[in-house]
């Protein structure tokens, strides 16, 4: 319950800051641009498909539009999540407000979980604010509802992974800029790893590919396990780091 109080405060402080609204507005603008581009490409493709029977057999709204939609948001999250997670611990240490949390009757697990959920709540708000884009598909077509459900799940898991990693970075420094740089370096490395070839273990570590199947409507146990292990590891590491504040 007390973790929820911390999550709520975190969420409302994002909305109380100019940064929060700036990130939200910028995200919606760019996501809207991506959406109209992929919609235009899909319209082009389907017009060609009318005269080319082979293309028509390949035309798939889930494959060519819905997964594009989630893919573009996922890429934006690689850059946005570090900007959100940098605020989680660094300013609390710099302004000495962490002292309030550490001396209140809440456990360190409550603090870490609350902050994580607050940041995840903000990304969920951003994500669902884009819902009107795909909703317009029902006006003209019959998109696969399941792909949307798994797509949103995959995107949230991706955001959770990026945020948990950024939260650890934020717990290591009192500077938000340093926290941001560390988090974005981590996010970019985990993104670029997918270029290491499809069968290598390095590519298995890459974070975005584990969300990709969910964007196409496929949920694999291995992907869910990956995200659970990833987020669990970074939440635990952050817990240990915050606990170490008592000993420094």
């Amino acid at each position: 319950m007390r973790a929820l109080a911390i999550a709520q405060r975190e969420l409302s402080s994002m909305f109380a800051s100019a940064t929060g609204w700036l990130v939200l507005t910028g995200f919606l603008a760019v996501a809207g641009l991506f959406w109209s581009l992929s919609l235009a490409a899909y319209v082009d493709y389907s017009q060609q498909a009318m005269v080319t029977p082979y293309l028509a057999s390949q035309l798939d709204m889930t494959e060519h539009l819905i997964s594009q939609y989630f893919g573009s948001i996922g890429i934006l999250f690689v850059f946005i999540c570090p900007a959100l997670s940098m605020r989680l611990f660094a300013p609390e240490v710099a302004n000495r407000t962490l002292e309030l949390l550490l001396t209140s009757p809440v456990s360190t697990a409550d603090i870490v979980l609350g902050k994580f959920l607050g940041a995840l709540g903000f990304t969920a708000t951003m994500l669902f604010a884009t819902a009107p884009f795909p909703l317009m598909l029902w006006q003209w077509g019959n998109p696969d509802l399941g792909a949307f459900v798994t797509g949103y799940l995959g995107t949230l898991l991706l955001a959770g992974a990026l945020l948990s990693m950024g939260m650890l970075a934020s717990a290591f420094t009192r500077s938000q800029i340093v926290a941001f740089m560390l988090a974005i370096a981590g996010a970019l490395i985990l993104w670029v790893l997918q270029a290491m070839g499809t069968d290598s273990w390095q590519a298995e570590l890459a974070v975005v590919p584990h969300a990709q199947d969910m964007w196409r409507g496929i949920v694999r146990l291995s992907d869910l396990t990956y995200f659970a292990a990833f987020i669990g590891f970074f939440l635990f590491a952050t817990h240990q780091r915050v606990e170490a504040h008592r000993w420094s």
Binding site: I6, S13, N95, T97, L98, L100, T103, S104
Partner: peptide
């Protein structure tokens, strides 16, 4: 503490409600 642990972006009432919540 020596430096009062305040969240500067909150109002006084919001802040104290938050404190009251985490203190159970």
């Amino acid at each position: 503490p020596e430096a009062p642990p305040l969240y500067l972006e909150m109002t006084v009432r919001q802040y104290l409600r938050f404190c009251a919540r985490i203190k159970g």
